[in-house]
Amino acid sequence: MKRPCLLLTPGLVSYTQGWDWPKQIQQRKIQDSQHPDVLFLVEHPPVYTLGQGSDPEFVKFAPGTFELHRTERGGEVTYHGPGQLVGYPVLDLRAYRQDLHWYLRQLEEVLIRTLSHLDITGERVAGLTGVWVKGYKVAAIGIKVSRWVTLHGFALNVTTDLRAFEVIVPCGLTQPVGRVEQFCPGVSPADLIPLIATSFAEVFGVDLQLVPLAQVIALPVPQ
């Protein structure tokens, strides 16, 4: 029997709200290993985030110019905004594999398979984390794990305004940033949600069940 995993797609939500929900679920899963795994797929209004220990030299705008948050994830500065699908899997890796390198590669595989549904060839770059298409980085990945329960995840540029990346050095890299729309004109984030869901279920071997947000957030915290 496949392990159940709940899928939540609340749409466009603020970064702080979108971050708080997975954090709530992580804390519940740490307290109760029977709490279901969850995958959030969301979009955010424009916001920049810094990874733990990231280099501020990669931020090229003046303080206060744009919304900026330092987070617990690994990696350097990145951008989130409309047209980008952000995935926050909250998984108990003790039920999968207690190996962070493996987990990062699995997230890349989810995105590579997602792109393949659009006849787009996604690629890895040796020594780096993320997914590239024809030399353009279309997906960034940054994670944080506590007691083997995951936080943060991936960001896939679908129709993202790429000018937003001009005021940072994305992930500390000099390679160009791209978006899925370059290689599949007319595609939308809504088109990608079921493709990501299918690929995620395949890669992690889970039974992904779409549920309302209130059903998950309203779950009681174990005492």
Rank of each mutant, 00 (worst) to 15 (best):
Q175C: 14
L118M: 12
E181D: 15
P220C: 09
L111I: 14
Q175G: 09
V145P: 03
I168K: 14
T16E: 13
K134P: 00
K137W: 08
F200Y: 09
F165N: 06
L173T: 06
R124C: 04
E202F: 07
H117I: 01
A214Y: 01
L41T: 03
V133T: 12
V211S: 08
I143M: 08
L111R: 04
P189T: 02
V203Y: 03
H152Y: 13
G74F: 08
V133R: 02
Q215M: 13
Q52C: 11
E202P: 02
L8S: 05
I120W: 04
F165W: 10
H152I: 12
I143S: 01
W19C: 04
Q17K: 14
L210S: 12
H69Q: 07
H101L: 11
H69W: 13
Q106V: 02
V47E: 14
T198M: 00
E72L: 14
P22H: 14
L8Q: 04
L210D: 09
H80S: 06
Y103V: 07
G74S: 15
E108T: 01
P36V: 12
V158M: 06
A155D: 00
I196P: 08
G172K: 05
V90F: 06
S188A: 10
A201N: 02
Q34R: 14
Y103T: 02
W21G: 01
A201S: 15
L162A: 08
L68M: 10
R105Q: 12
A62Y: 11
L50Y: 00
N157M: 09
E57V: 08
I196H: 11
D92A: 13
D37C: 07
V77I: 15
W102Q: 12
V187E: 03
R28W: 14
T121K: 11
P36A: 06
P56I: 03
L91C: 10
V90P: 00
T71R: 01
L8I: 09
T121H: 15
H101K: 14
P10N: 11
A126G: 01
L91Y: 15
P189V: 09
P46A: 13
H44D: 12
Q31C: 13
R147Q: 13
Q106G: 05
A126D: 13
A201P: 10
Y103P: 05
E202N: 05
Q24I: 11
D99A: 06
S188Q: 13
L50T: 00
T150S: 13
C184E: 11
P22T: 14
D92P: 12
E202L: 04
R113C: 02
G122P: 11
L156S: 12
H44N: 08
P222D: 02
R113M: 03
Q175R: 02
D92W: 04
G127C: 10
G18C: 10
I141S: 06
H69Y: 15
R147L: 12
E76W: 01
E43S: 10
G122W: 00
